[in-house]
Measured scan of single mutants.
Amino acid sequence: MDVFMKGLSKAKEGVVAAAEKTKQGVAEAAGKTKEGVLYVGSKTKEGVVHGVATVAEKTKEQVTNVGGAVVTGVTAVAQKTVEGAGSIAAATGFVKKDQLGKNEEGAPQEGILEDMPVDPDNEAYEMPSEEGYQDYEPEA
Rank of each mutant, 00 (worst) to 15 (best):
M1W: 00
V3D: 03
F4Y: 14
M5Q: 02
M5F: 09
K6G: 02
L8W: 10
L8I: 01
A11M: 15
E13D: 00
E13C: 10
V15M: 11
V15H: 00
V16W: 07
V16Q: 15
A17N: 15
A17V: 03
A17I: 07
A19C: 05
K21C: 05
T22W: 04
T22Q: 00
K23N: 04
A27T: 07
A27K: 12
E28A: 07
E28T: 06
E28V: 15
A30N: 00
G31H: 03
K32P: 01
T33R: 01
K34D: 00
K34P: 00
E35G: 14
G36C: 05
G36R: 11
V37T: 00
L38F: 09
Y39T: 09
V40I: 01
V40E: 00
V40D: 00
S42K: 08
K43W: 11
T44S: 06
T44N: 02
T44P: 01
K45S: 04
E46K: 13
G47I: 07
G47N: 11
V48E: 01
V49R: 12
V52P: 01
T54Y: 11
V55C: 06
A56S: 06
E57Y: 03
E57A: 06
T59N: 02
K60E: 01
K60C: 10
Q62I: 15
Q62A: 15
V63K: 00
T64P: 04
T64K: 12
V66K: 07
G67S: 12
G67V: 15
A69I: 15
V70F: 05
V70C: 15
V70Y: 06
V71L: 09
V71K: 12
T72M: 12
G73D: 05
G73A: 09
G73L: 12
G73R: 12
T75F: 15
A76Y: 12
A76C: 09
A76G: 13
A76T: 12
V77P: 02
A78Q: 01
Q79S: 06
V82M: 07
E83L: 11
E83G: 06
E83I: 06
G84W: 14
G84H: 14
G86C: 08
S87N: 01
A89N: 04
A90K: 12
A91F: 15
A91Q: 06
G93N: 08
K96Q: 06
K97W: 13
K97S: 08
K102P: 06
K102R: 01
E104Q: 02
E104K: 00
A107H: 09
Q109M: 10
G111Q: 00
I112N: 07
I112Y: 07
I112K: 13
L113C: 13
L113P: 05
E114Q: 00
E114N: 10
D115Y: 07
D115L: 07
P117N: 13
P117Y: 06
V118A: 04
D119V: 10
P120G: 10
D121L: 11
A124Q: 10
Y125Q: 12
Y125H: 09
E126C: 12
E126M: 08
E126D: 09
M127T: 15
M127E: 11
M127R: 12
P128E: 07
S129C: 03
E130L: 04
E131W: 04
G132V: 02
G132I: 12
Y133H: 02
D135N: 12
Y136N: 05
E139R: 05
E139A: 05
E139K: 11
A140E: 06
